[in-house]
């Protein structure tokens, strides 16, 4: 392949059509992912997609690349091994909310802690789709499902809190129906060096329809979503008339130009700030008083696990006097009988 061939979304299509229910949000993210992969410019042969089990994880069958549809909850561990073994490939993980935060919760938090350079696409539909509609770790308290006919009596995770709490250095959020927003978030995740999580809010039409009504359509997002951009003021609303300001120990929504608030008072987003406090706060804003935050919320560069592994190998190799089996044997306490 010629290095500077321009890739298109079609290059990442294997021609196999998605088999999700008509109207499933996963179609949208499938198309955005292919566009993002093209934009990133790494060819299919160097693109690895490792998915778990769930409707979302079926993505692996509909992409051109090195795709591996694995087992429930484990794709992040498999992807980590893959990336550590070969840092030269771009490794994606596709997983559902159950896959990543229920059965695979341990791998999820530890991958973030290690900071292996993989891109985790977390398709959050707040339900178990593939097993036909049980509540998930992100379902709201009281959620009625087949496995909770009288409503759940447990609180959900907020993925962002889990991710940032597990020292995740990249977190973005997008909505499956928002093509440009998704492509931007996915592209940024891939460019970030380290474990990057993109939470995709995706509607399961069949078992949890309407879960993201507040931001699912373009019109709704204009009102209720705040798109964060590094270095830009946090403005939202149809005419960007609202802004986020600091208010004592909290954040507050104000109308710019009213109540004495000017553009100067509006917080400017700093995705690179190492402190996690405000990123956590922003990503947990919810309605009805606050907009839902989309875009790249946190993007902080620190050394990746696999880089550190390679560095250590280099450093120790220089110090030690053995570099193959025979030389290793010479370091042992031996005796020779002639």
């Amino acid at each position: 392949m010629i290095e500077d061939t321009i890739l298109t979304a079609e290059d990442f299509s294997n021609g196999v059509k998605g088999r999700w229910c008509a109207g499933c949000g996963d179609f949208g993210i499938h198309s955005s992912l292919k566009k993002a992969m093209a934009e990133i410019g790494i060819p299919p042969s160097k693109t690895v997609v490792i998915s778990g089990i769930g409707c979302s994880s079926r993505m692996a069958y509909h992409l051109n690349g090195y795709c591996f549809h694995t087992i429930h909850g484990r794709p992040i561990a498999i992807a980590s091994g893959c990336k550590i073994a070969n840092p030269d490939i771009n490794v994606w993980t596709i997983c559902g909310d159950g896959d990543s935060m229920a059965i695979g919760g341990n791998h999820f938090i530890h991958a973030l802690r290690r900071n292996v350079n993989i891109n985790i696409v977390l398709l959050n539909n707040r339900i178990y789709g593939l097993t036909k509609g049980q509540y998930s770790p992100t379902s709201e308290r009281g959620f009625v499902s087949k496995s909770s006919p009288y409503g759940t009596v447990e609180d959900p995770f907020r993925p962002s809190e889990l991710i940032i709490g597990a020292s995740g250095e990249f977190f973005a959020r997008c909505v499956a129906t928002d093509g440009p927003g998704s492509v931007a978030a996915l592209t940024a995740a891939s460019k970030h060096k380290g474990t990057a999580v993109v939470e995709v809010l995706t509607n399961c039409v069949t078992f949890n329809n309407g879960s993201f009504e507040r931001i699912y359509s373009k019109e709704a997002r204009e009102e209720n979503a705040l798109y964060l951009e590094h270095g830009k003021p946090m403005l939202f609303g149809k005419n960007k008339e609202f802004g986020i300001v600091q208010h004592g120990f909290d954040l507050k929504v104000v109308k710019v130009g009213e109540g004495g608030y000017t553009l100067k008072d509006v917080l400017v987003h700093d995705a690179h700030c190492t402190d996690r406090t405000l990123h956590t706060k922003l990503s947990s804003l919810e309605g009805p008083d606050f907009p839902l935050v989309l875009g790249v919320i946190r993007d902080v560069a620190i050394p990746t696990y696999e880089e550190e592994v390679e560095n250590q190998i280099k450093e120790i190799s220089e110090k030690k006097n053995y570099h193959n089996f025979d030389e290793l044997m010479k370091t042992q306490t031996t005796w020779t009988i002639e």
């Binding site: 690895v48 694995t70 980590s80 550590i84 190998i313 053995y322 089996f325």
Partner: peptide, 27 residues
């Protein structure tokens, strides 16, 4: 390390096996 060996102390045995599968997949 001077033999280029990569060892990962994983979060559990499941991960140990899965990481190895990922590494095998990568060659």
């Amino acid at each position: 390390k001077s033999l280029g060996i990569k060892t990962v102390q994983c979060e559990d045995e499941i991960s140990g096996c899965c990481m190895a599968i990922g590494a095998s997949y990568a060659g």
